[in-house]
Design a protein around this nucleic acid. Structure first.
Length: 265
DNA sequence: AAGACACGCAACCGCAAACAA
DNA sequence: ATTGTTTGCGGTTGCGTGTCT
């Protein structure tokens, strides 16, 4: 479901109009475009500077959230699958409501997405079944953060998530700004035939294990976002720090323009 | 057909940790 | 050591859409 944007300008005639205040509410396609371009070509030093340099009247916090939850190129667009749901339930049992940790083990999914999914669907379902049979073990949500150290070894270690050829994995690395660390990793498209993030590797049969690089284009700074896809691999979150200058250019033209932008309309 | 209700999602809020000056 | 700033996280809310009556 895509909500119609209530652009913050709509309230510009209100009492707040004269204040050069931060915008709130849904993001317009133009704002998305600006933020995306800013981060793609110039990277992130601090989020507040991103907002400023992109000419957005948004808080850095808001920009970060928008990028993390929506604009990041490695996000899966298709609905959460049954298998992913099982993973969420399993991880929630062992980790509690530590959504970011859970998300880090589910490439292409955001903590917000998982949290929403849990709150709107799984929790209700589990509550319903718990009423039916009181044998249902209590979720670990109530446990404190200190439990993270006591989590099961299986959950505490970065267990590999096997990704088949149908789930090309992308790694993005911000090289600009402080640290230049891994910004995000995740899987591109999924089993859904109408997946919005089709790549050239999507149709592979799964017999390739070498990283494949997106096509090359010719725009922008060379190394702000470095971008990879893998056809078939065991994925350890945080492992994909591979530097392939120019790799994102092909992705940008293929995904951002053709699919991502159309999904906004 | 219309209103009420439920659902799903995007985004905000408040807090705490990490970091810088 | 202290203070201010930034980032990251989880909880919560608001609103558009779909479904039911």
């Amino acid at each position: 479901m895509v909500r119609k944007p209530i652009h913050a300008d709509a309230g510009a005639n209100g009492p707040e109009a004269n204040k050069e205040k931060e915008r709130k509410g849904l993001w317009s396609p133009e704002e998305d475009e600006r933020l995306f371009a800013q981060i793609t070509y110039h990277g992130v030093s601090t989020w507040s500077s991103v907002a400023q340099l992109a000419g957005l009247r948004r808080s850095g916090k808001s920009c970060r959230l928008r990028w993390m939850n929506y604009l990041r190129p490695d996000l899966k667009k298709e609905p959460i699958s049954k298998r992913e749901e099982e993973t969420i339930i399993s991880l929630q049992q062992s980790l509690g409501n530590r959504w970011s940790t859970i998300a880090s083990r589910m490439p292409g999914r955001t903590d917000n997405e998982i949290k929403n999914y849990w709150n709107s669907r799984i929790r209700k379902r589990l509550n319903a079944t718990a009423k039916d049979s009181t044998a249902e073990p209590a979720p670990a949500a109530a446990r404190g953060k200190e439990d993270s150290a006591n989590a099961t070894p299986q959950a505490a270690q970065p267990t590999p998530v096997h990704i088949t050829a149908r789930f090309p994995v992308f790694g993005c690395q911000m090289l600009d700004g402080a640290g230049g660390g891994m910004l995000s990793t995740g899987s591109g498209s999924g089993e859904s035939p109408q997946s919005s993030t089709t790549t050239s590797t999507q149709q592979n049969a799964g017999d390739q294990s070498e990283p494949s690089v997106g096509g090359d284009g010719g725009c922008g700074d060379s190394n702000m976002l470095h971008f990879l896809s893998f056809d078939d691999l065991d994925y350890y979150p945080g492992d994909l720090l591979v530097d392939v200058p120019g790799a994102m250019d092909g992705w940008e033209s293929q995904l951002y323009s053709a699919n991502w932008m159309s999904s906004l309309c």
